[in-house]
Structure formats: structure tokens, C-alpha cells
């Protein structure tokens, strides 16, 4: 264990596990490889903290920056501005062994389960690789950990699975292998990016239940990314709603679902049907237009061009700060002013 890591753990024990401040991740867009056209502001001013053992969900439309945020938290993108502090240590300062420790502490379930597993490796090899990289040189110890984690994701008996290649597994089994790989290094936090969107409805619930159970048993911090609000109630304690690179609303799950404050969140909720034969006979309310370009985001509130409640002279002029319209419930909207 390195010096940075042990002192950081001592400092960080009582604070949040993860603290994110003023985080920006911009991608430079170039034409013909050199001409700078502008920046895609995928993450554009994000602040939040995650407590140990907490499960949270990041929700938002396609392209709003959820995966970019996840990858920045993991240290895969360098923030353009702001910082990610894990367990009291700035992730940007981590080098060598310490960066390796961080990678082992934060498990990643990446979007697209089908592309996530290398096709030419069997399951044993897929799960051994991270252990080897992180210095578990004993074959016996590796085998013990692999079997334990396969058992945990309910892929047992291990013998029936270990020698299989990804194409021999069903979508649900592949997704469990991806989760097992994220867990095998015994991380303290998991970031799961759309862990079920490619799966069948009946398998989805099974995988989500599995993640939630492991999260509770291991007392993991779980950040769960999705565009589907209907699943989050059962799998998260808190929700962050993202729009165009920013967090526009955050609250505990029940509070947010019962009293959505931001017009964007309200429209997301209104778009989701509770199964009812009557749905077929009415049009559902959907905000017009499309999410804004992250290359040239609109001035003021980014939702104002689609917002049914936009206040002329205000919303298109100034960026709304985070208000707290209800206790423990924040929303970045001028309606709360």
C-alpha cells in the first residue's frame, strides 16, 4: 500500500467517498485533424458528493453527457476544469501505483455489454486479467476469487461458465460476466453505465436486483446511469437528473418522483407510461424540439427553448443557479427564484 493511499484513507474516512467540484469535460472538435472548430461541452459544470454505501442514479436523455461524466470520474478523460476527489485524494494527482489502486477501487460496468467482452477470451481469462494486472500472482488465489465472484453474480456452478467464450453466453449471462469483472478486484464503488438497456425486459429486472443486492451486501457505493426513470425507484436512493452536460435536479428518489421541480424532470416523468390500456387513446405530452447542441449550447437556461414555463427576459439570459425549493431537493430553474 502506498503512502498516498494510506494517508488519503485516513483523511477521507469521515467525508464523502466521492466529491466532484465544478467538473468540466470538453472535447475539442477538429476538422481535417487540426483545424479547431470548437468544444463539445459534454460535462459542463457538475458538482455532487456521494456517501459511502449510497446508491444513486444519473438520468437524462441520450447525449446529455452521462457516459462522459462516468469516464471522467474513472480517470479515463482528463477534466478540462474542476476536480474529482476520491476518498480525500484528487484523482488528477494520482500516478503509477496510486492510479492503479484507484482503478481497482472503482469498478466500471461499461455501456454496451456486447462490445464490452473481448470475443477471443474465455470467462476465466476475462476475470483473471484484472487480477494479474493488479498483482495477484497466485493462481490458486485468483481461481478462488473468480469462483466467489461468479457465485455472487449467480453464474454457478462455475465449471459450466469458466471455459465459455462470450458468444456462447446469452445477453443476460454476458452482462453478469461484465458485472463480475467489475467486482473481482473488490472495489468500494461501482459505476454502471446503462447496465441493462440492451437486455430483455425480464432479464433487466434480474440484473438490477442482482446489482442492488451486491451493493447492499458489500456496502458499495453505486452510481447507476440510465435514461429510464421507471427502473430507478427500486435501485437507487438518490437521483441526479442531467440535461445538456449539467445536473438540473437532485433529490432522494421518492421525493423526486413525488414532487419533481424542474420542468425537464416533469416532462421526463410525463413521457413514461404506467401500463394501462387507456394509454393507446391519448397523446402523451412531450417537449418539442431536440436537446441542444453541446458545441453551441443556448444562452441562459439550456432547457429554455423547449420549456413550457420559460420566463421571457430571464430564462434565455441568465444561467439559473441551484435553488432548494424543498428540503434536500435542489433544482436549477428560475421558477424557484
Amino acid at each position: 500500500m502506498s503512502a498516498v493511499r494510506s494517508s488519503a484513507q485516513a483523511r477521507g474516512r469521515d467525508g464523502p467517498l466521492l466529491a466532484v467540484q465544478d467538473l468540466h469535460t470538453w472535447f475539442e472538435l477538429r476538422q481535417w485533424g487540426f483545424l479547431r472548430v470548437g468544444s463539445v461541452r459534454a460535462v459542463d459544470g457538475v458538482d455532487f458528493e456521494l456517501a459511502r454505501g449510497e446508491a444513486v442514479a444519473f438520468v437524462g436523455e441520450s447525449g446529455c453527457g452521462k457516459s462522459s461524466l462516468a469516464r471522467t470520474l474513472l480517470g479515463l478523460h482528463k477534466p478540462t476544469r474542476g476536480e474529482v476527489v476520491f476518498n480525500g485524494t484528487r484523482v488528477a494527482d494520482l500516478r503509477g501505483k496510486d492510479m492503479q489502486w484507484y482503478r481497482a477501487s472503482v469498478g466500471y460496468v461499461q455501456q454496451d455489454p456486447y462490445g464490452a467482452l473481448p470475443p477471443f477470451m474465455d470467462v476465466r481469462r476475462i476475470l483473471s486479467e484484472p487480477l494479474i494486472v493488479h498483482g495477484i500472482s497466485s493462481r490458486v488465489e485468483r481461481e478462488r476469487r473468480i469462483r466467489q465472484v461468479l457465485d455472487e453474480v449467480r453464474l454457478s456452478p462455475a465449471e459450466t461458465i469458466l471455459d465459455k467464450f462470450p458468444h456462447m453466453l446469452s445477453g443476460g449471462q454476458q452482462q453478469r460476466v461484465v458485472i463480475a469483472r467489475a467486482l473481482v478486484l473488490e472495489p468500494s464503488m461501482i459505476i454502471a453505465d446503462e447496465p441493462v438497456s440492451m437486455l430483455d425486459a425480464s432479464v433487466r429486472v434480474e440484473i438490477l436486483n442482482l446489482l442492488r443486492r451486491i451493493q447492499t451486501e458489500r456496502e458499495l457505493t453505486l452510481a447507476f446511469i440510465t435514461h429510464d426513470l421507471s427502473t430507478v425507484r427500486h435501485f437507487a436512493d438518490r437521483i441526479f437528473v442531467m440535461y445538456a452536460g449539467r445536473i438540473v435536479e437532485q433529490a432522494p428518489v421518492d421525493e423526486l418522483l413525488a414532487h419533481p421541480q424542474h420542468p425537464y424532470t416533469q416532462s421526463l416523468l410525463a413521457a413514461i407510461a404506467d401500463v394501462d390500456a387507456a394509454n393507446a387513446r391519448q397523446q402523451r405530452e412531450v417537449p418539442g424540439g431536440e436537446p441542444p447542441s453541446l458545441l453551441h449550447p443556448p444562452p441562459g437556461c439550456r432547457f429554455h427553448p423547449r420549456c413550457p414555463h420559460a420566463i421571457a427576459g430571464v430564462c434565455e439570459v441568465d444561467d439559473p443557479p441551484q435553488f432548494e425549493p424543498r428540503r434536500g431537493h435542489r433544482s436549477a430553474c428560475w421558477l424557484h427564484r
Partner: peptide, 16 residues
């Protein structure tokens, strides 16, 4: 199948 549908506005846990 109907019991496995996650319900936004209800508390029951979906079952697989």
C-alpha cells in the same frame, strides 16, 4: 411478465 414491469408510480418491487 406483468409482475416484472418496473412501475414508476408504484412501490412494489418488480419480480423477475
Amino acid at each position: 411478465l406483468m409482475a416484472s414491469v418496473p412501475r414508476l408510480r408504484q412501490r412494489e418491487e418488480p419480480a423477475h
